[in-house]
């Protein structure tokens, strides 16, 4: 019975790992239970594989600037999802919804963005549904 139980647990764990590795790397560094909304100015837009990166300077209530690095997915997946490299430029004001890093660093997984022209775009992350959007 214990052997059977072990095998069932092992199979479930394998499936979890398989899901986690659909992407270039594990997204387990990100907190899937909540999201943060960041309104800031784009300082860097890295349109590359294996993943894209959006860097923002966000001002807090005191006027102090905080630099955030938000990771996207593969630009191939993004292109198939309707993204283009010219959608974002350095200096643009954007609002980003991201899953924060568990470590507390000012980094996160970009889930969606409202661009300078008001267009809202979702990040087509494989199995992205596991990342909760919270107020």
């Amino acid at each position: 019975m214990n052997v059977l139980k072990d095998k069932i647990i092992w199979v479930l764990l394998s499936l979890c790992i398989a899901n986690a590795t659909l992407a270039h790397h594990s997204f387990a560094v990100y907190d899937s239970s909540r999201s943060v909304t960041l309104k800031g100015v784009v300082t860097k837009w890295q349109w590359t594989n294996p993943h894209a990166y959006l860097e923002l300077d966000v001002q807090d209530a005191t006027g102090a600037a905080h630099h955030y690095v938000l990771e996207g997915t593969s630009i191939n997946i993004m292109i198939r999802g309707g993204w283009r490299s010219n959608m974002i430029k350095v200096g643009d004001q954007v609002t980003a919804v991201a899953a924060p890093t568990l470590s507390g660093d000012q980094t996160g997984l970009l889930l969606e963005a409202t661009l300078a022209n008001g267009q809202k775009v979702e990040m087509p992350i494989p199995a992205g549904y596991i990342f909760k959007r919270t107020p």
């Binding site: 986690a20 590795t21 270039h24 790397h25 594990s26 387990a28």
Partner: peptide, 19 residues
């Protein structure tokens, strides 16, 4: 698998060849 699972739970995943 156990090591990967524990590392993921700690938010510090193990490196992979894909990574």
């Amino acid at each position: 698998v156990q090591a990967q699972s524990e590392a993921n739970a700690n938010g510090m995943p193990l490196a992979t060849r894909l990574m």
